[in-house]
Structures are given as C-alpha cells and as structure tokens.
Design a protein around this nucleic acid. Sequence first.
DNA 1: TGGCCGTACTG
DNA 2: CAGTACG
DNA 3: GCCA
Length: 785
Amino acid sequence: MAREDMDKAAYFKALSSLDEDSDDESTISSSRDKLTTSLPPHHKSSPHKHNETVDPKQNATPQLERSLSAPTPNSPSPVHLIKETPLVSIKNRLQQGRTGTPLSNEVSFVAETPTSPKPIQSGGARPLRKTSAPTPTTLNRGAQFPSFSSAALGKRKRKEPSIKLVPEQHRIFKDLVFFYVPPDDIAPVRRARIVKAREYGATWATEWTETATHIIADKHLSYADITSFLKISSIPDHIILVNELYPLDCIQFKAILNPNQKQYLLKGYEPTTKDSAAGTPAQPPSSPAPQQSLELKTARPKPGRWSYVPPKATPDRSQNGGDRQSALPEAGEMDDVTRSPEHAEAAVYGTIGDEDTTEPLGAGPVVESPQSVEEVSRADDDLDEIIKGALKVQHLPLDDDEDDASPTGSPHHGGDSSDDNGSPKTKRKHITRKPNFNQEGFSCMKGGTIDASSLNPNARTISILQEMAAYYTRMDDTWRPIGYRKAITTLKKQNKLVSTAEEAVKLPAIGQRIADKIEEIVHTDKLRRLDNTKSDHNDIILQLFLGIYGVGISQATTWLQQGYTTLEDLLAHASLTDNQRLGIDHYQDFQTRIPRAEVSALAKIVADTARGIDRGIEAIVAGSYRRGAESCGDIDVLLTKPGTSACSELTPLLYKLVSQLRASGMLVAPLSVGRTESSSKWHGCCVLPGQEPPIWRRIDFHLAPASELGAALLYFTGNDIFNRSIRLLASKRGMRLNQRGLYKSVMRGPGRAKLNEGELVEGADEKKIFAELGVPWRPPEERVC
DNA sequence: TGGCCGTACTG
DNA sequence: CAGTACG
DNA sequence: GCCA
C-alpha cells in the first residue's frame, strides 16, 4: 500500500514537473502543488481495479528510472534535435518549484516537437502496422502515460508515436483494421485520434486495402469523396464506413457501437442494412454499455431530495440535440454563437413589456444588420485539397465541436450582426466623470459583437487560445485562464486578422507571450505547446471528469490520482455526491446544447404555470438566451413580480411553482435549492414534456423583487466575463455590484476587501445601473465578452 | 509584486 | 470550511 | 496569462 502511494506520488510529481517543463516559460502557479504534495490517504475501498487501469508498480517506477537516465534504451535513431522555433522564447525551463521532484532537474528541456514526422512512411511501405505486436521501438513499459514517457524522452524527438495499448480486455478494436481518409496523421488532432484507436487495439492501415474493416472518414467528407478518393465505385460490403466520431464514441462507451447511427454516417451515404451484422448492436456482450451500468445505480432518494430516476438513454444521445462530436467537453463556450434580432421580445413572458427594446441612452436600438456572407461551407471546399494532396491538413478544426454549437445549423443570422466593432458608434463614451484609471481595460465598456464563429477572422486563433485556457484550467491554474480569456475577448472584437506579435501586443489584454502565441498560430496554424497535451491520457480523462456537473478541478484531480479513468469507474467505485451521480447519469444530456426554440417552449410552461399561481409573476428568460444565442447550455429564468421589494415575498411562490412543475413532469430533479427564507435561487433539471427521448436540461430559477430586477437582470444575463468586468469597474469606483443592486460608499480594506455593505444606489433599473457606473448601455446581445 | 467578481449552496 | 456553481 |  504505502509503496503504491509512493509510486503514485512519484509519478505525479514527475508529471507535474514535466508539464511545466513543456510550458513555454517557467512556472505554473503553485496551486498545483496539491498534486505533488499530499496524496490522499489510501482508502481500501479505493479503485484498484486489477484488470484495467494503472498498476503503479509497473508504471511509475520504470518511467522514473528511464527518464532519469535520459537516453532511451530503445529509441533507435537519435534523430536530430528539433530546433527551437524562434517564435517561442525558451528561457529557463528549469523548474524551481517542484521541490524534491526527482525529475525536475533532469528533464529540463523538452523538445517541442513540431509534429511533422510522418511515422508511417519511415518504415517503408508496409501497409499495416499491428499495434498489438509492438515493434522494438515501442516503449510499452509506460503503458498508461504516453505523454509522460514521451516527454521524459527529453530532447529526443519522438520518432514514432509510442502506442500504449490499453489492457487487453479493453481493446475493443482488436482485430479491426482502420483505414483513415485522409490516410495520414499529420494534423495533431487526427494523429491523436488514430493513436487512440490503436491503443484500443485497432490496426491502422496506412494504405488502402480491402482487408480494412472500417473506413474512418474525416467529418467533412461525403460518401462521394471517399469513393473518388479510393477510386472505387462503391465501398465493399464488408467494410464499414463511418466518420471520425465513431471510434471516439466507441472508446468512450467501451463498446463497438452500431455504426449505422446517423451521427456516424457520411453525407450521401445510405448504409445498406448489410453491415448491421458487422456493425453490431450497440451493446456487445463483452463490454456493457454505459446505459446499463448507469441503470444499476438507480435512485437512492435522500430525504429532502426528489426521487431520482435515472432515465433510459442518457449517454447515447448523441444524435438529438447537437451532435457532440467528441465525448469530451470542449473548452469554449459555444453559446452566443448566433444572435437573432427578435430575441428581446421572446425573452419575456408575463406582463413585462420591453426592457430591451426601448432605449434612449446608449447605442440605440440595436438592429442587426442582415448579414450576408455565408461561409459555412468553406471547410468543405478544403476537402478536395485534403484528399488530393493529403499533405497539409492543418485546417481541420482543432477542436471537435466548433460548428456544431448552434445545432439548427441555421446558417444565417450568422450572428455578428453589425460588424460594428470598429465602427465609431462604439466609441461614444459619454464621460460622466473622469476616471482616474484606465477604463479602456474593462471589457464591459465596449461591446463585443463579433462572435467566435467562422466568420471571425481570428476564429482559428481564438479557438486555439480557448483550448489553452481550458488546458490551464485543467492544470488547476486559476489565473492563466483568465488572462487567456481576456485576450480572447479582445481578439473577438478585432475585425481583421491579427497575424503578428508586434501587432498583437498593442491590443489590450494581450501581452508579449500571448502575442507570440498568436503569431505562431497564424503562421503554423497551431500551437506546439498544445499539441503536447492532445494525446495525454490524463488530460483527456481530466476533461471527461470536469464535464460532470458537480465535479471541479479538485475532485477530478483526486479521482485521476486514484486511478479512475472512466465514468463507469466512478459510478462503480468512487464515492459520489448525489449531484455528481446525477451529473454522470446525464452526462451527455447536460453536454447537449439546447435549441433556442426549446428554451422558449420550456419557458412558456414556466411562465404559464407561474401566472396560474399569481397573475403578477413574470418569468424572464435571461442567460445566453437573452443574449440572443441560438442554443443555450441551460435555461435561466428570472422570476419577479411588480411591487415586490423582498425575496421573501416571492419564495413561497417559487415553492408552489416548483411543486407544480414537478407534478406536471417538467421538473425532474433538484440540484441546489435555497436554504433560507429569503434565498433567491433554485437549480435543477427539467425536460420538455413529450420530448422523445427526453433530454434532461439544466434549469435555474432566480428570484428578484421588483426593486432588484435591474441588478438581477444584469447578473443573470451575463455573460460571466462581462459581469466580472463590470463588477471590477464598480469596485474601482468605490462601489459594489451584485445581483441585488449597485452600492456606493463601500469601504474596502486591503485587497479591495469589503468592509461594509455600502449604500444602495440602484437596483431596479438595469439601465440606470449602467449609467451610474458610467458604462454605455449595452443591450444583452452585446454583452458577449 | 500582487491583484484578477461577488454571491450562495453542498457536504 | 473547501469545493462547486451561477452569470 | 495581463496589468498597474
């Protein structure tokens, strides 16, 4: 036991230091030390699944040894060192922090491999490589932690992606031969996917062969693309044609899924019912599909908690809603991708009339200019090239989801409305007061209207920076992600491509380091720094865990340390809170975006029910819906009533409302409910009655007496960055802004610590709050930061 | 070098 | 209390 | 990460 702990500790220490190593510049903040310092006591109940997962004894130790003695025994050719690219300043990579880590001094220099090597060709023309028969160069000792071992190789350029097979019983792709189209692994994402498939037992055919069992096509390809690429008239019956999503899902569900599901089909391809045989039912006997294991752990209602019935088809729900392409959550927020002009009215149910529409003060009624260009298909055009040359595939989106965010796929309203941002109008800043600080730095001062969709010239850069932010979040770094997000906000507002570092540093919130990264991204279409993480198992598991409602970085890290790797592991062995269990059972549901129309429908039910309880109640949908998003991550309903001045006047109504909605079947579970009399929130889950299959949605109610409506709207409309920005601005002005109101004469101690409550300035009127702060009014759809 | 929003629920 | 969540 |  103790020994295992030690090994794990050693491993994680090593991991940490390596990670920092590969970081461009030195340090990562200290919070991550928790990884290296304290290991949780080993409970016996803890997850040592003998079969799968890690056996620390086998892994950590050898790894450490190997990395300590730099040269890799098996690595055949020393290959030339990768030259540091000029773009990245590599200063000191020695880590001071990771004290006592055996590796920290050794692995000080990790080559940022440019990924170019085409592993396949190098070995000559053998078309198949069997992963199950590791080549001499395969470093299989390190089985579980590829990134670690590859990083540990130090400067040595990896010649061939080391494939670390998963334990045999998990090799769901055993005996399968995958042929990818395009048949290369140049793009980092694709390489990671291919490696992953191989780790699960697949054989990768790098040349077309009819012995292939599956053709895995790039998601943009159509059936015709494939046949023409292969120069055949049709795909042989015994070969299964699926898109790249398929293997990922199989891996996540640990099963060979039915390849005929529509989310795996290619455009223009009608499966000939034939392959249902080969394709297999979704749940092969060998590996229980998640649904089943999920069903096992059924409701264990707890006093005060609704009985919670795990619904049938949760995890498999990829087809409805937005096809999530990858099992893993993506970093960036996808809401606000598009806006529609009519949002304002739609957002309000009940007697309230307007609040957005009338606008004297700020930027007038924001009428979206119809916008023109439709670019959605650009990606498709690239495909030809890809197929032909198949050599520079770098345009494939780095992240999986991108364009799926707005489900409807509704092409128009491609958002962006007015490409107003450079336009003079945004510049109007009526200076009420002269601030003694630079208010340019506050993103709440300027409208963000250009979204991150493909229309944005910096979309690619933004997407990659978002991944970086997400990556650092996973690393338990609190502040870097904020830095990145601010930079991203700035970038979103540029209406032309920012391509050089020189140009970039001049922009607010973009410093030298991000500027360098921007330049690298624009020039190479990727960030090497990020590539390193792409195939990191632990990182991928972390992403998985962080996608669970109720699980944050702390819990996710702990579970990872304990050796859990899948949601099923967690359900079976980890100790979970009720919310977390629910979060796992509905993992896919919660990951699925909610079409705007469904939000409207749900809100209408709420509003109608509420009015049945009290005519005066108004239900206003806030959140990304109010910002005009075409799809939302959850539903935010603000409940208010004219004439009220305290939450306590509304709480009883909320209680009734919830109980009626629950009775009517719309609300299906509570997650977090107010404790006190005057509390103002209720968080839970709902489904659209009649929806088949039902998809659980996150819904939040927020109570606001009329006297606080403005502040509540401001808060509940967000977005979060906008809120933080405007709140920070308030605090710089000696005020305080929260969901109840704007307060002045707040005395603050060191570090802006609040010393007193302050005196209420305004709470009822959203616009007045802007005005008091000297912030130009911005309608909700311009609060996208 | 230290700050980076303010609040509320869970266990 | 730390952790997670909400915008 | 960025900034004062």
